[in-house]
Design a protein around this nucleic acid. Structure first.
Lengths: 129, 129, 129, 129
DNA sequence: GTGGTCTAGACCACG
DNA sequence: GTGGTCTAGACCACA
C-alpha cells in the first residue's frame, strides 16, 4: 500500500500522513471509506501501532479523516469552506514553487500546459471502470 | 535583511536557507554577489554563527551558492540543465498542491488565472540590467 | 425523535444520555412521563438495545429518570435541593466557560445580554405548576 | 502545581490539557511564559513524559501554547478572531448549562448576579502585587 | 476487534 | 537540556 523511507529526515508518522492524504485527495480512498485498522496497517508496514495511531490522529486534526473508537477510522468527506486557511497556505506554496521553477529555467508555456492538463484530467474524475 | 521567527517549530537554520533561497530566486541577490559574512549576519540577526554556517553549508549543498575558502560565500549563477532533478521534484510538488486545492474545492479557472498572473508578473518583473 | 451521530467520537450511549437529558430539561418529556421502551427505541434508532440500556442506567444514576421493573422507565420530577452537588458543578462550569470566553476576546456586555435573553425566554417557558 | 486524578474516567493527558488551559485563561501563566519542561513536569507529577508531551501537543493544536524543539514550550498570546469557532462552541455550552441550572431550580437573579460578579472581577485583571 | 491511553526506555536534532 | 520520534508491550472502553 505504501512505501516508507525509514531513513528519511521526515518522521515516519509524517510520511504516513502525507501518503494517506494523497490517497484521499486523489480519490483512491473514497469518502466514508474505512481506513486499514491501526494494528493491521502496523503489521503490514512492520512499524509500531502507536506510530500509525499518531498519523491517524494527525490526519483527524487536519480534517481529512475521522476516527470512531471501537469502530474504526474513516475518510471524512470534504466540506467546502472548511479548509479556507489551508487553501490560502497552498496558494502561497504554489507561488513559491512557480517562482523557483522560473528561476531554474522552466518555460512559462510548459508550466501552463502542464497545469491545464492536470486540471482537465482531475475535472473529469476517475469513474474507475 | 531577514525576519526570523524564533517561535516557529521549523529550525532557525532551515528558515535561513529558505529566506536566502528566496532572495536568490527573486534576484535580490545577484549571481556571483557576495553573501554577508557569517559573523556579520550572526551579529545582525543575534543568533549563533554556527547556525549561519549550517545554513550556508546547506545552500551550497543544494547548489544555490558556492564558497571560496578565505574569501566568503557567493551566489551561484543558475545553469540550465543543472537543476533537472530539482525541477522534476518541483513539478511533482506542483501536481500535489493542485490536486489538494481541487480536493478542497478551489475552482480550476481561479487556479489558472492566479498562475498566469504570476507568470506574466515574474516574466516582466526585473529588467534590471 | 433523536438524531445520533454515529461518526462522533463520543460514545453513542453518551449522546443518548445528553439528548434525553435535554428533552427532560426542556420539558419535552414531562415529569413521570414514560420513556420509550428499550427495544422500541433501539428499533427506531437502529442501534443495539444494550446501548439504550446503558444510557437509561446512566440517566437513572444521575437522577433524571427512575425505572420500575416490569413497567418501564419514567422521568423523575426534579426536587429542589436534590441536585445541590450537580448545581455546584454547573456553577463551576459556568465560571470556567465565562473565563475562557473573556480570554478569547468576548465582550462582557455581549455575554450578559445573551444570558439575560435566555433567562427571560426560559422563565416564561414552562409555568408548569 | 496540579492535582491529577489517576482514577478518573477522563484521560490523564486530557486533565492536564484542562488544568494548563485554566492556568493560561486565568493569567496564572502569562503570554510567552515558558511552561515546565516535559521531563520536569513528568517528574513532579510522577507520570510518563510521553503523557505530558501528548498534553502539550494537544494544547498546541488548540492554539493555547507553542513548542519550539530544543528550546521549550511557551504560552501563546491570544489573538482576537483566532478562536471564533471555539467561541461559538462555548456559547452553546453556556446555553446548555443555564438551561440545566434553571431546570434544577436555580434562581435567574442568582445566576445573573454570579456572572456579573465574575465579569467585573476578571475585567479588573490581577495586578499581582 | 476497534481506537485510545499509558508506561518504560532508547535515540535524535537543535541551539 | 530541550522537544520530538519510535518501539514494545499492557490495559481499557465501546459496539
Amino acid at each position: 500500500m505504501f512505501e516508507l523511507d525509514l531513513r528519511s529526515r521526515s518522521p515516519v508518522y509524517e510520511q504516513l500522513v502525507e501518503k494517506i492524504k494523497d490517497l484521499i485527495i486523489n480519490n483512491v480512498l473514497q469518502p466514508d471509506e474505512q481506513l486499514p485498522a491501526v494494528r493491521v496497517l502496523a503489521g503490514e508496514l512492520t512499524i509500531n501501532p502507536n506510530t500509525i495511531q499518531k498519523a491517524y490522529r494527525e490526519l483527524e486534526h487536519r480534517g481529512y479523516i475521522y476516527s470512531v473508537p471501537g469502530k474504526g477510522s474513516f475518510v471524512k468527506p470534504a466540506v467546502a469552506g472548511d479548509h479556507d486557511a489551508r487553501l490560502r497556505a497552498l496558494e502561497n506554496e504554489l507561488s513559491r514553487i512557480i517562482s523557483e521553477m522560473l528561476y531554474l529555467g522552466a518555460y512559462p508555456a510548459d508550466i501552463i500546459t502542464r497545469i491545464q492538463t492536470q486540471l482537465f484530467k482531475d475535472k473529469g474524475g476517475q469513474p474507475h471502470d
